[in-house]
Design a protein around this nucleic acid. Sequence first.
DNA 1: AACACAGTTCTATCTAACAGAACTTATGCG
DNA 2: CGCATAAGTTCTGTTAGATAGAACTGTGTT
Lengths: 237, 237
Amino acid sequence: MTDAKANTTTASSGGVESVDRALSIVGCFQAGDHALSLTEIAARTGLYKSTILRLTVSLEKAGYLVRHQDKSYRLGPELMRLGGLYQRSLRLEDHVRPVLRQLMRESGESASFFRREGAWRICAFREDSTQAIRDHVHEGDRLPLDRGAAGHVLSRFAGTVSAADFAALPLRSFGERESETGAAAVPVFSQREGLVGALTLSGPLTRFTEDRVAVMAPLLLAAGRRLSETLGGHYPA
Amino acid sequence: MTDAKANTTTASSGGVESVDRALSIVGCFQAGDHALSLTEIAARTGLYKSTILRLTVSLEKAGYLVRHQDKSYRLGPELMRLGGLYQRSLRLEDHVRPVLRQLMRESGESASFFRREGAWRICAFREDSTQAIRDHVHEGDRLPLDRGAAGHVLSRFAGTVSAADFAALPLRSFGERESETGAAAVPVFSQREGLVGALTLSGPLTRFTEDRVAVMAPLLLAAGRRLSETLGGHYPA
DNA sequence: AACACAGTTCTATCTAACAGAACTTATGCG
DNA sequence: CGCATAAGTTCTGTTAGATAGAACTGTGTT
């Protein structure tokens, strides 16, 4: 390898450059971006506009992007199909959703299920509270692993776990990831994978006081235990 | 090289081949496929295994695919993030308006989009015909749910739907809600909500004869299907 | 009218994507 | 148990085709 232009950000081996670039275009859409202009995409990715124009033709053909009248790019419907497929391929969903729904009904607060994904946690499933004031997290959202009740659960119950760890459940957080939000969370285990995720109840701090959380605790623990048993994992007796 | 101009034959033109191929790998996952082997992917896409191996490195890096212990490929979590983003970026209006405009241009009649609202239906969006004689409904108008083509659609396609229901599309009404007005309507579905509304063409009975409506029918059906697909819902094949 | 800026087209150059053979594990089957 | 066959992986010479960047068009602003 005669060293190429100074440019290459990824540099590292393997893969196909044009594919990396194309996916970086899709990837530069972040929460809140409804539409991005060619110039904006060029700024975010560092690619030449002509290159983007070429790559987006392929992305449009595949339905990953849609170009609007005003020349702006938006994400395309194929992503929804694939996102749905991904979720269903984890058959977790069938078991988790009913539990979330029940948790939400019993507690009145939003119930979510987080999975670890590298150095992050993603909200795999969620049942929103029906109350007017609630926290806003959506399925697919990626949150930090080191903040929030669910984050702590995914960190602490990843390896071998002591009885003391279970005694501390549910793990709580108050105004930690977001200043106005509180949460309580428990782990979920399966037969084959061990820790698969964290069940959490979350909402505004005004409703997440120590007292209130103490009421939610047994609901969460029961749900975590029940779901884990369904998946073949188990809590200590 | 010699004369570049001549070589316009394949004309699959535009786009980047390696990106097309990479996306065809992701695209070959269909409902029910939890995991695909290298060989299976090669069979479905027609690509060489070595090519797939190279391309999948990029797809894995981007989180579009995950490779399991057993060497099988599964869809990756990035797809869920993007799918979620897509759904939230859906502003119903952005997708409905262009469809209405096209419907109106193709048919020459006023096109409207109705949503159910309790025991009523309201005209959420509308594109008026340019003809001098036309029916007069405005955005925001509240009409009865039990009269008119769009009303019937919103009633009949609300719950579970049979193939026979689809065979009857578009639903028609002649001088029903208003003595001088006729209409034809089809349902629109989305991924999450199911039935979201009804697309309708309406105008004076003098232009809404059985014959004329028969001409509009395929336009409406195509529009309903297309819009539904954009929103992640679907018509039966 | 002149400017600035977004989007688009075009092309010579040379990278890096490709096909296919060769090789190394796994899996089945008699 | 061992032979057969298929799955997965690595390697390489060739050249297709992806790239960078200049040039161009169109649109809105002062």
